[in-house]
Amino acid sequence: MRIISSDEIEACLEDRPVLETLRRAFRSNTVTPLIPDLAIDRLDQHSGHLSFQPAWTDFAAQGDVSRGYIGCSLALDLPEQNGLSSGLYILFSGSGGQPIALIDGVRLNAWRTAGVHALAAAYLSREDTSRLLVIGDDPRLPRLLSAYAAVRNFTSILLAGVSKETQKRISNQPAMAGVHIGVTNEIHAAQEGADMICVAGPEYDTQTHHSLTYLDPPAGCHIDVLDTTALLPSELLEEARLFSSDLSNPPRSELEWAADLKELAQGNKAGRRYYGQRTLFIPGPGTGLADYALAAHIFLRS
């Protein structure tokens, strides 16, 4: 069994191949059972949870077991980790059943998250999208913005509430060459000129999740929600066309969803219907399909 480190993952992955791998995954018949998270009771309000995201080739539909994989991501989330869960991905041979790879789950998570959100942006943002506003801080932002740049030609990126460390890492991304990157505190005014808005998380100097009551994107804007705990205005959720990654397990069951990435990738549902429509993407909790596809991609290329 090969152990694939975070450095090896970085060395073998590029944004565009990752996006196409994920696109093919959402078009496939990969089996992705839903396994509830397991609560871990610990003293002094230090409880956490352990999550499993299994997936495997649809061997029955394929008609043989000579090719394909069986895999599962394991993620541990404890309060001491400050929102950054640790994890591993184990990949088995579909024919022999032996474990063939153990992959760093944290770096896999970063690439998978970026790829899924960028794939959604490819379907839902306008093709002439060039101005991006990022609200809030998240350590995955440099990887996410690099993936965005693989699907849209950004000329300007404004960062609001992003730490200086994250700002520096964003600026150092090769995909940001030629892109004007600025910082603003005037979020309300900045959103008026945005073609796309990324709700990334709370501002770096706050300890609580933010309520975006002021969020009122212009017509035609695509809103990509990285921080699923952010409180979005009810008017926006009612007016925008809503999308998720997998509606078999939606992030919020009370909302009216238009389609998920499976339906978009397979051509069964439409994304943006007209130029001035506001679209909004919130990922679902299930990541088994994307993790599986990316783990196999890494195994074959590392």
Rank of each mutant, 00 (worst) to 15 (best):
P54N: 09
P54M: 04
W56P: 01
W56C: 09
T57A: 07
T57E: 15
A61Q: 12
Q62P: 01
Q62G: 04
D64C: 07
V65Q: 14
V65S: 12
V65E: 14
G68K: 13
Y69L: 02
Y69S: 08
I70T: 07
G71P: 06
G71N: 10
C72E: 00
L76E: 13
D77C: 07
L78G: 06
P79E: 06
Q81L: 15
G83I: 01
S85D: 08
S85M: 09
S86C: 05
S86I: 08
G87R: 09
L88A: 12
L88F: 13
L91Y: 11
F92V: 00
F92R: 01
G94D: 05
G96Q: 11
G97F: 12
I100V: 15
I100W: 05
A101S: 06
I103A: 05
I103K: 02
D104L: 04
D104C: 04
D104Q: 07
G105M: 11
V106R: 13
R107C: 06
L108S: 02
L108E: 03
N109R: 11
A110W: 00
T113Q: 02
A114V: 02
A114N: 02
V116R: 07
H117I: 12
H117F: 09
H117G: 10
A118D: 09
A118L: 06
A120K: 08
A121Q: 02
A121H: 04
A122H: 11
A122T: 00
L124D: 08
L124H: 06
L124Q: 10
L124T: 05
S125K: 08
D128S: 09
T129R: 04
S130K: 13
S130D: 12
R131A: 00
R131H: 12
L133G: 09
V134S: 03
V134I: 14
I135W: 12
G136V: 08
D137F: 08
D138K: 00
P139D: 02
P139Q: 08
R140P: 00
L141G: 01
P142S: 04
R143W: 07
L144N: 05
S146T: 09
S146A: 15
A147W: 07
A147Y: 06
A149D: 01
A150M: 04
A150E: 02
N153Q: 14
N153A: 14
F154D: 14
F154L: 15
T155I: 10
T155E: 10
T155F: 03
S156D: 10
I157G: 06
L158H: 10
L159K: 08
A160L: 03
A160F: 02
V162F: 10
S163N: 01
K164T: 13
K164F: 06
E165L: 11
T166S: 07
Q167W: 12
R169T: 13
I170E: 00
S171H: 11
Q173H: 07
A175T: 02
A177D: 13
G178D: 11
V179C: 13
H180W: 10
I181E: 10
G182Q: 06
G182E: 14
V183H: 04
T184Y: 07
T184F: 10
T184W: 07
E186L: 11
H188Y: 02
Q191H: 04
G193I: 11
G193P: 00
A194L: 04
C198P: 00
C198G: 01
C198H: 05
V199Y: 08
A200G: 09
G201F: 04
G201S: 02
P202Q: 14
